[in-house]
């Protein structure tokens, strides 16, 4: 087993741990906002660690950049969707609503 194998193994294990923790939080946390917190933070970290772990095995730089781009896009999409779900779940009086939102 080469050092690169060890590195990949450690990173993927750490990533899998965060996915596991996020899933546990999704199932066990009491309300929507804390579940969302567990899910998005843990998923972003989990995917990031797995991508970082796989990077040295990719061979060429273009594929590495593609994988990093996938991670960045997933983080952006997850953060956006988490914000939208969290806002919908807020009780009405807590939702800030500026006057210029066109309603």
């Amino acid at each position: 087993m080469t050092p690169i194998d060890l590195y990949t193994l450690a990173m993927i294990a750490a990533g899998a741990f965060f996915f596991f923790a996020g899933t546990l939080g999704l199932l066990r946390f009491p309300d929507l906002h804390s579940r969302l917190h567990a899910l998005t933070k843990a998923d972003n970290l989990g995917l990031g660690l797995i991508v970082l772990g796989l990077l040295p095995r990719m061979g060429d730089v273009a594929t590495m950049l593609k994988m990093l781009l996938v991670w960045v896009l997933v983080v952006g999409a997850a953060a956006t969707v988490a914000q939208l779900i969290a806002r919908i779940a807020l009780p009405g009086h807590l939702r800030s609503r500026p006057k210029d939102d066109g309603r």
């Binding site: 952006g76 953060a79 956006t80 914000q83 939208l84 210029d100 066109g102 309603r103």
Partner: peptide, 19 residues
Amino acid sequence: QHARSDGVLATFGRLLPPF
């Protein structure tokens, strides 16, 4: 559609189309 012009969805909606 009720999206806030300065909200996260508006930002994401500007970020993603080029990709």
